[in-house]
Design a binder for these strands. Structure first.
Length: 213
DNA sequence: CACCAGGGTGGTT
DNA sequence: AACCACCATGGT
């Protein structure tokens, strides 16, 4: 299996600390996880800025926002109809629960289950909320993560998410480093070769198995 | 111009 | 279980 501790160290040496998540309040992170779905961060950040300037990065005000208005505000992030509905459901979920402070007292397992019950929140988004909004020690597994693990394995074989999760949490147990690990894998993934199964020339880092030297 | 970005859902084979 | 279409804008 992949040596996750060394992976993190090498990524840190290559790219430096990423500083995710750039937000001031947990609900801003929650809204951001929806807005960034299948979207470049720069575009999601514009939508977040527009919400902030309209005072909507607050679950109580967002829950009462007009849906059509919300759609126009978040347009830069794309998928604006689906995402506006998801934001409203998320805001109302926080309100039903009694606010962020109450959610923060829930166990990670319970909170994950509640998030997954929301339409529009899948495993990756739920885990991103747990890690980046609530600082829970959770592994966020995305397409880049699966690709890196497959390429670092002996024969480029794919692992299940459960196997990847086990390897990550077995080697990295604190939220701060899990935060960096996911951010760094994304930073590397953006730059690395998309060809499959391997690329001989374009990997930027020395540790990467598919650089072949 | 084509392709992709810090996914998720619902339908079809 | 493995695909597909859809959502939709902005960067390269």
């Amino acid at each position: 299996m992949v040596d996750v501790g060394r992976l993190l160290d090498d990524l840190l040496a290559s790219y430096g600390s990423q500083g995710w998540w750039p937000a001031e309040h947990p609900f801003e992170v929650m809204a951001g996880t929806v807005l960034v779905q299948r979207t470049a961060w720069n575009n999601a950040a514009r939508a977040i800025a527009r919400l902030r300037s309209n005072g909507l990065l607050d679950h109580e005000r967002l829950a009462r926002a007009d849906e059509a208005t919300l759609q126009q505000l978040i347009r830069p992030a794309g998928f604006y109809r689906a995402k506006a509905a998801r934001l409203l459901r998320l805001a109302r979920f926080v309100g039903r629960a009694g606010g962020i402070e109450v959610l923060a007292t829930q166990s990670t397992v319970d909170l994950r289950h509640a998030l997954l019950a929301l339409d529009g929140i899948g495993e990756e988004t739920a885990d991103a909320v747990l890690l980046y909004a609530f600082a829970r020690p959770v592994a966020v597994i995305d397409a880049y993560t699966r690709r890196v693990f497959a390429r670092m394995s002996a024969s480029n074989r794919e692992f299940t998410d459960a196997q990847i999760r086990g390897a990550i949490t077995g080697a990295v147990s604190d939220a701060a480093r899990l935060n960096e690990l996911h951010a760094l894998i994304n930073e590397h993934g953006k730059r690395s070769c998309r060809k499959t199964p391997v690329c001989a020339t374009c990997c930027l880092t020395s540790w990467c198995a598919f650089s072949r030297g």
